[in-house]
């Protein structure tokens, strides 16, 4: 029993919600937002999708198992920390493109904290979708 209204609203809202979540993720370092909030937002989008189309379908949207997303998220966050080792600095040292080693090569205010936040984002998405999918799996 699928509600057509819900389906059509979801079709409309889903990309928007995901966009908002990415927006929240990216601006996190300078304004309210961040990986955690962005991730929650994205999971809300997937939940909405699940409510509309059935939770089993979320897996096909994700194209992979939630556990892989979890692993990737963890790996991404760790990698942002490992960058510090490469620069002979402590673990998780913030490194920026417009500063230090990369200074002058690319002038972008993007740094390893963003990579870290992406990891957080992925983990949060993985957690919520994982729970919802596991519940729906027969």
């Amino acid at each position: 029993m699928r509600s057509i209204i819900l389906i059509s609203i979801t079709r409309l809202m889903m990309p928007m919600l995901l966009m908002v979540s990415l927006f929240l993720l990216l601006r996190g370092h300078d304004a309210p937002g961040g990986g955690f909030i962005g991730g929650l937002m994205a999971s809300a989008a997937f939940c909405l999708y699940g409510l509309a189309f059935g939770f089993q379908k979320i897996k096909s949207v994700l194209h992979t198992d939630p556990r892989v997303i979890l692993g990737l998220g963890l790996l991404t966050s760790l990698c942002s920390g490992f960058l510090g080792y490469l620069m002979h600095k402590p673990f998780l040292t913030a490194l920026w493109f417009d500063e230090g080693f990369f200074n002058g090569v690319i002038n972008l205010h993007v740094g390893s904290p963003l990579l870290f936040d992406i990891g957080v984002y992925l983990v949060v998405v993985g957690v919520v979708t994982g729970i919802v999918i596991a519940h729906a799996e027969d």
């Binding site: 556990r67 692993g71 990737l72 920390g81 673990f91």
Partner: peptide
């Protein structure tokens, strides 16, 4: 000598095992 690897090595391993969950 670095201390963080003591935490990161297992976490890294956890991430790998998650990627190869099957």
């Amino acid at each position: 000598m670095l201390i963080t690897p003591i935490i990161c090595i297992p976490l890294f391993g956890a991430a790998i095992t998650l990627l190869f969950y099957k």
